[in-house]
Amino acid sequence: MRIARWTDGTGTVGEGFVVGDRVVPFPDGLTVAEVLARGLAEAHRVFATVTASDGVALSDVRLLAPLVPASIRDFVAFEEHVEGVSASVDGKSEVVPEWYQAPTFYFTNPHTVLGPGEPVLPPVTERLDFELEVAAVIGGAPGDRRANLTADEAREVIFGYTIMNDWSARDLQSREMKVRLGPAKGKDFGTSLGPWIVTADEFEPFLDDEGFLAIRAEVYVGDERIGHDLVSNMGWPFPELVAYASRNARVVPGDVLGSGTTGNGGCLAELWGRRGSLDPRPLTEGDTVRMVVEGIGELVGPVGAVVPAPELPPARERSRHRAREERVPR
Rank of each mutant, 00 (worst) to 15 (best):
D8Y: 08
G9F: 08
G14R: 09
E15G: 05
E15R: 09
G16C: 10
R22K: 04
P25W: 11
P27F: 06
D28F: 09
G29F: 13
A33Y: 05
A43C: 11
A43G: 09
A43L: 03
F47R: 15
A48D: 07
T49G: 13
G55Y: 09
A57R: 08
A57F: 11
V61K: 12
L67T: 04
P69K: 07
R73E: 00
V76G: 01
G91F: 00
K92G: 06
V96Y: 07
W99M: 09
Y100W: 15
Y106H: 13
T108M: 14
V113P: 07
L114N: 14
V120N: 00
P122E: 00
P122A: 01
V124E: 03
L128Q: 04
L128S: 01
A135S: 08
A136H: 15
I138L: 11
P142M: 04
A147E: 15
N148E: 14
V157S: 15
F159I: 08
G160K: 07
I163F: 03
W167R: 00
W167A: 00
L172C: 15
Q173R: 05
M177D: 10
V179E: 11
P183F: 15
K185R: 11
K185A: 13
G186F: 14
F189N: 13
G190N: 07
I197C: 02
D201Q: 12
F203C: 08
P205V: 01
F206T: 00
E210I: 11
Y220R: 14
D229F: 00
D229C: 02
L230M: 09
F238V: 14
Y244I: 12
V252S: 11
V256S: 12
G258I: 10
W272S: 05
D279A: 15
R281M: 02
T284A: 01
G286D: 04
V300M: 08
P302I: 10
V307A: 10
E317H: 07
H321W: 03
E325Y: 06
E325H: 15
V328C: 01
V328W: 08
R330N: 11
